[in-house]
Design a binder for these strands. Sequence first.
DNA 1: GCCAACGTTGGC
DNA 2: GCCAACGTTGGC
Length: 222
Amino acid sequence: MSPKKNARVGKRPASSGDGETERAGGKRKAAASDETGENKESSKSSASPQHCHWLMKSEPESRFENGIDVKFGIEDLKALPNQTSCWDGVRNYQARNFMRQMKEGQLAFFYHSNCKEPGIAGIMKIVKEAYVDHTQFDKKDVHYDATSKPANPKWSMVDVQYQRMMKRFVPLSELKKYHLQHRAKGGPLKDMVLFTRARLSVQPLTAEEFDFVLSLEDKQPL
DNA sequence: GCCAACGTTGGC
DNA sequence: GCCAACGTTGGC
């Protein structure tokens, strides 16, 4: 349940971007490539830029979607056996493509969204690389996708394992202050995807962004 | 392929 | 609860 449950998080069909979407690159036919989505981006070599750090959003407070509670906060992840969960329910091509780029062992921030205090709650590790998200075929699931066929699944998920809580919760409001400051005068958060593409539920961070956010743990709240 | 209408995300 | 931003859909 993870993000799956969180509704918005993964779930939506919102983005587009990359992969299959057609319009995105102008190529609508993306279809062909889409599956991976990744291929396309790199026409030249083979790999995409290749990110190593991530931020994944989920909703820590109860919210009902089709009668199902989509709540899934970091405490919920921590409480699972092995503190591990699949991150299902992502229904956005760009977010999906980022998940497909994830490698075992990489770290991701667990971000709490659509709640009283949005922000970064803790850290998790990617413990299983992208595989088929079975919830897309489950009519009972909030994120069922009637347009996806088992012979050619559209959606993927990864498994994540809880690592630790942040030493202190790092609120969105604080990150935003740094972002604005850095945008004006330069600094590691000047192009943070959390602000440049606010609705994306799975997003990459540069090493500099990741390290800067970590450094905030030991600083006084701005 | 364009674009208006519509739906969703998610901060506030 | 509101609503701005933005992604998706579907007519043409």
